[in-house]
Write a protein that binds this DNA or RNA. Structure first.
Length: 594
RNA sequence: UGCCCCGUGGUGUAAAGGUAGCACAGGGGAUUUUGGAUCCCUUAGUCAAGGUUCGAAUCCUUGCGGGGUAGCCA
C-alpha cells in the first residue's frame, strides 16, 4: 500500500464535491439560498444516486392536541424538503397518526389542517389516516406470527413491565413466548373480534429479552382497546402501537425519508426491524418494495416557553389561559391570533436550522423575525393606548385641520391618509412626566415635543386630581412648525396623539411573555409558579378614524411608537374595535430605564 | 447503571483535512418628525488531553460534560 496510487483524496462519483447550493430541483431563488442541513444533504445525495426515486416526506401528527411552534419546525422541514425537489416529483403527505382512540378527536383533526394551511403549506390530495391502514397492519401482525416473529402474550401489563428488566439488567421471556403460531393466530383474531377485555392479551414481537436496547425486548405491537375511534368508529377494538404502525404507514405511502425527533433514535432499530420483516406484506399490497429510512433531528426548545402538549393542555384546562388559541400560547392558533405572520414563523424555522444538537433557542430570535416581517409590511397609524387629555389653548375651538401623512413614511410609494387635528387631543400617559428623569425627552411641564406629523407643542399647565395624578394638560402649539423645525432651538422628542373629536374608542389587549423566566420547566414550584402576572393588560384608548375605517379581523398594523397590533380574530368588530399587541417596538429608552 | 446520540462566541447555526463565517443578543457611532427603521464599526468561540498530518473544529484514542431511553402514549 505504501506506494500505491499517487492520488490523495480524490472522491469518485457522487462524492466528488457536489454543488451544495444548486442541487435543489426547484428554481426558487430563496430555496437555493436556504441553508443545507444534514438531512437535506442526505436527501440530495439519495436523489443523485437514484434520480428515479424522488423524495417523499410526511408530517405525521397525532390528533390529540393543537399544533405548536415546535411542530412548525417539523412542518417546514418536511414540506420544505418536498418543495425544494418538486421538479423531481417530490411530495409531502399530511398523515394523522391516529392509533390511540382514547386521546384523539375530530376537533384536533380540523385544527391541525387549518394550522398547516395557515402556515402556508399544501398537501394536495395526500391526506392520510393511519387508521385507514388498520387491515394491512393486522395482516402484518398475522404475517409476523406465521414467521415465528410475534406471539400473543397473555400476561398482565404489570407482569410485562416487571419482566422487561432494567437499563442494566436483561429481561425475562414471557411464559407465552413459545406458544404455537396457530394458537397465537387464533388468539389474535379473537382479540380483534372483541372476545377479550382490555389488557388481557397483547401481540408482542419476538426479538430478544436480553437486547441492550429496551425497545427491542419483545415490544408490544397491538393492544386491546374497546373504544370508539373518531375515524373508524367501532370497527376495531385492537389498535397498533406507534412502533409497529409508524414504519408500516411510511412504507405503505412510499415515504423515503421519515423525519422525526431525537427521542425516537432508540426506536430506529425496531423501525428497521418492522420494515424488514413486514416487507413481503407491504410488497404484496403495493406491488413494489418500499424501504423508508428514519432520520432524527433535534426538536425545538424555546426560552420562556413550555412546549409539551401535556403542559399546554393543563394551561387550558386550569384556565390559566383562555384556550388553545390564547394569544400567549405557543400554539400555531395562538400565534395566529396574536398576530404573528406565518411568513415570520417560516423564516424563523429557516434561521434556526436542523441539527442533532438539542439546544434551546432564545425567543428573541422568533420575535426578531416577527418584527422584521411586520416592519416591512405594516401600515403606520396613530393610536393612544393609555389616554391623557390635552387641550391646546391657542387653537380655535371649532377648527379641524386635515393632515395627510403617508401610511409608511419610509416607503416613498406609500399612499396618504387623512388625519384630523383639533383643539383637544389624546396623548399617551407614558409620554408625560411631572418630574422627568435625565434623558427624558418627551413632555413635561414647560417643555416642548413634536406631535408626530404635526406641530411642536409646549406644556403650559398641568391639571391634577386629588391624588396628584395628571388628568389634563393645557398646552400651546407653535403655529410655525408644521412641516419644519423651529428656529433657534432643537426639539428632540416626538410623540403620537389622536384628535379627540374624531377618535374612535378601542380596546387594547397588551400581551407579554407568559413566563417570567427563561426555563419555566425547571422553575422550582413548576412552570405555574412563574407565570407572568402581567402577561395580559387590557386598556381602553383611542385610534385615528382612518384606521377604524379599514380594520378587519386579522388586519395587522403598526401604531407608531406603541408597537404592532392586530385586530382580534374573534372579538374585533367594526363598531367595537379590539386590537391585540403583537409585539412592541424595540425600545432603547425602556431598555436604558431597566 | 446499560445502550444510543450530541459538544463551535451569551444563544442558534456554517466551515466535506487548508483564512473559524452568518444570524440573534450585547456595546459604540452616523442618521432620524417613530427613543422605531436604516447604515457603519465592535466585543465574544472550536469541552479537555494525547495521537495522525506539512496542516485538525473536522480523522483516531481516552477523559469530561449534556441529552434521550425501562407506556398495553406518540
Amino acid at each position: 500500500m505504501a506506494d500505491a496510487a499517487p492520488t490523495h483524496k480524490s472522491k469518485p462519483g457522487p462524492h466528488s464535491k457536489p454543488n451544495r447550493e444548486g442541487q435543489a430541483a426547484g428554481s426558487d431563488p430563496q430555496a437555493a439560498a436556504a441553508p443545507v442541513d444534514f438531512i437535506r444533504e442526505i436527501v440530495r445525495a439519495d436523489l443523485r444516486r437514484d434520480p428515479a426515486t424522488p423524495p417523499v416526506t410526511r408530517f405525521p401528527p397525532e390528533p390529540n392536541g393543537y399544533l405548536h411552534i415546535g411542530h412548525a419546525k417539523s412542518i417546514c422541514l418536511n414540506f420544505g424538503v418536498a418543495e425544494e425537489h418538486r421538479n423531481a416529483g417530490a411530495r409531502c403527505h399530511l398523515r394523522f397518526d391516529d392509533t390511540n382512540p382514547t386521546r384523539e378527536s375530530p376537533e384536533y383533526v380540523r385544527s391541525i389542517q387549518d394550522d398547516v394551511r395557515w402556515l402556508g403549506f399544501d398537501w394536495g390530495e395526500h391526506l392520510y389516516f393511519a387508521s385507514d391502514y388498520f387491515d394491512t397492519f393486522f395482516d402484518c401482525g398475522e404475517h409476523l406470527i406465521g414467521q415465528g416473529l410475534a406471539f400473543v402474550d397473555s400476561q398482565s401489563a404489570d407482569q410485562i413491565r416487571d419482566s422487561r428488566g432494567t437499563l442494566t439488567r436483561p429481561g425475562a421471556p414471557s411464559p407465552w413466548r413459545d406458544r404455537p403460531a396457530e394458537e397465537s393466530i387464533d388468539l389474535f383474531r379473537r382479540m380483534r373480534s372483541g372476545e377479550f377485555a382490555d389488557g388481557t392479551h397483547v401481540l408482542r414481537a419476538r426479538i430478544s429479552m436480553e437486547h441492550s436496547n429496551l425497545n427491542m425486548r419483545d415490544p408490544v405491537l397491538y393492544r386491546i382497546v374497546h373504544a370508539s375511534h373518531h375515524h373508524t368508529g367501532d370497527r376495531w377494538c385492537v389498535y397498533p402501537m406507534y412502533d409497529f404502525a409508524h414504519p408500516l404507514e411510511d412504507a405503505l405511502e412510499g415515504i423515503t425519508h421519515s423525519l422525526c425527533t431525537l427521542e425516537f433514535e432508540d426506536h430506529r432499530p425496531l423501525y428497521d426491524w418492522v420494515v424488514e420483516h413486514c416487507a413481503p406484506v407491504i410488497e404484496r399490497v403495493l406491488g413494489r418494495p418500499s424501504r423508508p429510512r428514519q432520520i432524527e433531528f433535534a426538536r425545538l426548545n424555546l426560552t420562556s416557553t413550555v412546549m409539551s402538549k401535556r403542559k399546554l393542555l393543563a394551561l387550558v384546562e386550569k384556565g390559566l389561559v383562555q384556550g388553545w388559541d390564547d394569544p400567549r400560547m405557543p400554539t400555531l392558533s395562538g400565534l395566529r391570533r396574536r398576530g404573528y405572520p406565518p411568513e415570520a414563523i417560516r423564516r424563523f424555522c429557516q434561521a434556526i436550522g436542523i441539527t442533532k444538537f438539542p439546544g434551546t433557542t432564545e425567543v428573541g430570535v422568533l420575535e426578531h423575525q416577527v418584527r422584521d416581517e411586520l416592519n416591512r409590511h405594516s401600515r403606520r397609524h396613530l393610536g393612544v393606548v393609555r389616554p391623557l387629555k390635552v387641550v391646546i389653548g391657542n387653537w380655535p375651538e371649532d377648527r379641524i385641520d386635515t393632515l395627510t401623512p403617508a401610511h409608511n413614511p419610509d416607503d416613498v410609494t406609500s399612499v396618504e391618509r387623512a388625519l384630523p387635528f383639533g383643539r383637544e387631543l389624546w396623548i399617551d400617559r407614558d409620554d408625560f412626566m411631572l418630574e422627568p428623569p435625565k434623558g427624558f425627552f418627551r413632555l413635561s411641564p414647560g417643555t416642548e415635543v413634536r406631535l408626530r406629523y404635526s406641530y411642536v407643542m409646549r406644556c403650559d399647565e398641568v391639571v391634577t386630581d386629588a391624588a396628584g395624578e395628571p388628568v389634563e394638560l393645557r398646552c400651546s402649539v407653535d403655529h410655525d412648525t408644521l412641516g419644519r423645525n423651529p428656529e433657534g432651538r432643537k426639539v428632540k422628542g416626538v410623540i403620537h396623539w389622536v384628535a379627540a373629536a374624531s377618535a374612535v374608542a378601542c380596546e387594547f389587549r397588551l400581551y407579554d411573555r407568559l413566563f417570567t423566566v427563561d426555563d419555566p420547566d425547571a422553575a422550582e414550584g413548576g412552570y405555574e409558579a412563574v407565570i407572568n402576572p402581567r402577561s395580559l393588560d387590557i386598556c381602553h384608548g383611542w385610534i385615528e378614524p382612518a384606521l377604524a375605517g379599514v380594520l378587519e379581523a386579522e388586519t395587522r398594523v403598526q401604531l407608531e411608537r406603541a408597537g404592532f397590533f392586530v385586530a382580534d380574530r374573534h372579538d374585533h368588530a367594526a363598531e367595537r374595535p379590539v386590537l391585540n399587541r403583537i409585539i412592541g417596538l424595540r425600545d432603547s429608552w425602556a431598555r436604558r430605564q431597566a
